[in-house]
Design a protein around this nucleic acid. Sequence first.
DNA 1: CGTGAATTTTACCGGGCGGTCAAATCGATG
DNA 2: CATCGATTTGACCGCCCGGTAAAATTCACG
Lengths: 210, 210
Amino acid sequence: MNDTPPQTRIQARNRAVILDAALEVFAARGFRGATLDRIAQVAGLSKPNLLYYFRSKEALHLAILENLMELWLAPLRALDPEGEPRTQIMGYVRRKLEMSRDHARESRLFANEILQGAPRARPVLEGTLKALVDEKAELIAKWADEGRIAPVDPHHLIFSIWALTQHYADFEVQLHAIMGETDPFPAAEAWLERVFGAVLDPAAPPADRT
Amino acid sequence: MNDTPPQTRIQARNRAVILDAALEVFAARGFRGATLDRIAQVAGLSKPNLLYYFRSKEALHLAILENLMELWLAPLRALDPEGEPRTQIMGYVRRKLEMSRDHARESRLFANEILQGAPRARPVLEGTLKALVDEKAELIAKWADEGRIAPVDPHHLIFSIWALTQHYADFEVQLHAIMGETDPFPAAEAWLERVFGAVLDPAAPPADRT
DNA sequence: CGTGAATTTTACCGGGCGGTCAAATCGATG
DNA sequence: CATCGATTTGACCGCCCGGTAAAATTCACG
């Protein structure tokens, strides 16, 4: 699987620099909108030199995607079957929101990829991601059955967590246009605690069950 | 304001065809990723012919954005100060979700634009959109003050509605990878009613007010 | 059905794109 | 400090892109 283990010090450094620059540019422009010239420029290298480290634009994008996958799935992976349900889920929400604050570029890169049909990420989505989501959804369903959280649709709960947290990274420009210079994250954290607190509260079952 | 009123029948038809094709392509690939050749191909016209109707790629994209803005803001605009608060807000959620179902391309076009820094839409965001959001946020705040809905942060409530509903259009590929062929919208509608029902319920104030 | 305007097509251009290649330079090792 | 592989560069290629020019075609209307 690991095709090119970085050997020399120079290789390790330049690969890292390139990956960072590419993350920047891919996140801001999408795959087709990004250019190798610009990535090279941001990385402070010549384009042929960049292509010395990554065979092609495609290979570079794939390398980023692979690198990111672990980081991206970690919060959901950390959902602990042994933990207290509400604490676990609220912790997941908090970690995902921190992800949007501290790794906005990664979030936008994923958003770009998926928006444009996930031509490169689809295998990962259908493989690793689906397996992980199904596993955790089952866990959440169990918690709901046991009455430890309100009865919820586990998949849509997870989607909601993704949507609400990633929104703060992906649509930052829009929030900024509306809210001005204010840092939205403190308020966002309180708000999300409020929202999912209300949704998960086992004492308050679905409002209007007709 | 309206610079080029379509006069002949041919103009009206072709402009419409082009705008539809361009919506398709811009939504799927973003501005820089879209090409005039592809748009022309989808529209069933030659590229110079397309450029006969729209001076440039830029102008075409702007025309789409203008066309879309009304459609896009309509649901929020429809929030009625005279209506019953919860009905109004739940109606807004429902209309936004219908938007994601019936106008997914439009949603993805906006998402692309904003993700990539809204280089063309920023004026609208900071002008029309901000004004509208501020107005409706004030309305929601009033409702909350009057105790007719739970005390909420109006801006973050609106962002949440956007995030949750648009997610179903913008990240469709991801949902599809996880959920398979199932149409997510019926479940989504029930789920969102559940979520916002719980959040707005004035009987259940913020869980842990420290 | 002739005519002038509206529309469409063919041919093209300059620039930027992803990528290649061979030569130049660097750097670790003896 | 010589050597040889690792790294970097400059020059270049073929293609695609946004856009233009002008000729060819079609259309509305008298």
